[in-house]
Design a protein around this nucleic acid. Structure first.
Lengths: 210, 210, 210, 210
DNA sequence: GATGAATGAGGTTTCATTCAT
DNA sequence: GATGAATGAAACCTCATTCAT
């Protein structure tokens, strides 16, 4: 079989090159992301993914030894980028209004999840649902979320130190709550169709001084 | 067959009474809740549920015509009670500090999800993940969440009218953000093991005046 | 439950009387005939029959010890009457034109199979299909068909003795062929929708002198 | 697994060749024919067929997407060949005695149905019984039977035009009756064990001039 | 006699995975 | 490296039958 998806990767490069390997892996992972987002980790069958990728069953298993590992790879490609979105704000030295930072990150994430006609946002819900059952998902996810919490904590601490909020504030609890806004607004968007979480974040920042 | 689970419902009730019917349905639904919470909607097999309930396959299908409908019933029994938790606060006339109300509701939910040795909290993650694919889940969920949003909006409006926050505040955005805290804190607890969301809520209320 | 079907048999008579027993049995058998004709012996479920009859599962099993016996009873009620249709012609002493007799019988059968809005004709196809596998069906059916063959043989012999056909004719082969016309025309009617087998029979008699 | 049945098809053929595909399909269809003939379309389980064919469940579903389609394929392989048997006689220009043609066709069909130790004749009874419920069976069957009717009509018309029967004969009714003889004689053979339908046909031809 | 809740074996079909080509 | 035919365990669900009420 030779589908449109496969033809997008025309094999112009030697079949043994690392580039070819990476391209093929990306092709399969991309197909998996689409299928998982549409049907869930359990609901998507390997056959779906194989067909979507336009490759053979054997190929998929050459790049990913099992469905579980494909799930892990797909999940990581969803939640790993989130962390990098915060680097921009914590690397800078100027204190940034935390809600503004969160609003930017949220917008970026929403945009990239909907890029190229794909609807990957529901995938994060899949990841949350699967994580409690799957250590290979839970541990890296926990680590990433721990890192994000620290990033937000840094933002809040700087904001406090800059004098925008009371010096006695429990910054850790505040970071926890601010972090919680992001999954919460994602749920609101996906389940309720409540449009722009970023707008709510900004209004919220106005009202609370955060 | 007569398993331990079945013996917990000793059949003291005539087999034709409505009470017997309700008991049996509850027995099966309870088994389903446990299995779904542990293995996910797709991951739990009907055989698991049947064994856990200690009944026959035929019995399950007498009370629930398909796995889909069992999923819907299980999901509803998870998210329907949430709504009622807010009644206590919106029925009262005195203005209540919104974060306090949320903290109470969150505590209640966490407690009831962990009652009797069961760990049902992850089920809500399943519901979120499944809802985008399943209209029978999405529609009632959306309605319940819409109702909760209104409840929170009522709390926030009263709080504003009582003069605790600025009169020009965008209360709808505030309600959206406050609502978002609850799913977010649930995720933080389940994924990160971050203990008490209620504590963060209260600290957050202190810091923001909400 | 109390369906329309059940209400047609209002139980005005004592519940232990033989009439009550026969009525109840007939009610169930009638429901079975409809279900079998529509869905086949294997395709119709006992639940279908129970619902159609408007009685309980236990009742059906009081009157028919198993589905097999219900099938046998239904089959017999289909093919037993055929035999009696021939009595009219073989009892009479005058020679009858065989094709005329067959046409009359065929018309009667078609009419009774379609009486009261029921379409029972396909049931005979079920009986043929099931007979090779079910001795309880095959033996009585074989006997009835043997009897009919003899009836037709009698008709043909009288017709020959009356001088309408050649004296040296192989009457047994002729009887076999004439008998064959009836299942054949039934098949033509049910499968091809070819209307009136009786008309073809009469035209055929005209052409062949039979 | 490697059963006797599987070893009869020794896989000398590359596993990817069209011949291999056809062989495998034929192996499965052949097993299905045996099981359906023995137990009926509903009575034969997929497990029976799988075991008889000596393949895995998955293999059957690679070649036939469902039991229904396997039934259709089995049915067609039973009634499609009948049509071709008539070509020999209608292609020739010489008028043929219709009963002789029918006798030849009947003999051929009986012989091929009993070839290689298989008893497939009862399958046609299954097809008749199933056709009223299954459009995928009824429509092609109706078409084939319509074609056969036309073939017989051609034979009869030629026979009339050759002066062997009266010029005013209703040839369509005659064709209907002659066609009916074939299903009828098949029923007589299967149900009553009445041996050679061909002999009855020939004697019948002698007696009637057809 | 009548009821219908309960049973559990067995039905059809899917699916992750392997391995000869 | 790539392919896709084959596997068989396990999934969901049905159904004839029983028996306490």
């Amino acid at each position: 079989m030779s589908t449109a998806a496969a033809r997008d990767y025309p094999g112009l490069m030697p079949i043994r090159s690392p580039e070819h390997h990476d391209q093929r892996r990306a092709l399969i992972l991309d197909a998996a992301l689409q299928c998982f987002a549409r049907d869930g980790f359990q609901g998507a069958s390997m056959a779906d993914i194989i067909t979507t990728a336009g490759v053979s069953a054997g190929s998929v298993y050459r790049y990913f030894p099992s469905k579980s590992e494909l799930i892990v790879a797909a999940a990581q490609s969803v939640f790993m980028p989130v962390r990098h979105q915060f680097a921009h704000f914590t690397d800078a030295d100027d204190p940034v209004r935390p809600t503004t930072a969160l609003a930017h990150v949220l917008s970026e994430l929403m945009a990239s999840a909907s890029a190229e006609g794909r609807q990957l946002a529901p995938l994060i819900l899949e990841v949350w649902a699967e994580a409690p059952r799957d250590t290979a998902l839970r541990e890296p996810l926990k680590e990433v979320y721990g890192g994000i919490h620290n990033d937000i904590l840094t933002l809040v601490t700087r904001w406090r130190d800059a004098g925008h909020i009371d010096a006695n504030t429990d910054v850790d609890a505040l970071a926890t709550a601010l972090f919680a806004l992001m999954p919460g607004l994602l749920v609101a968007r996906i389940i309720q169709g409540r449009g722009d979480g970023a707008a709510a974040l900004l209004a919220f920042g106005e009202a609370t001084g955060l």
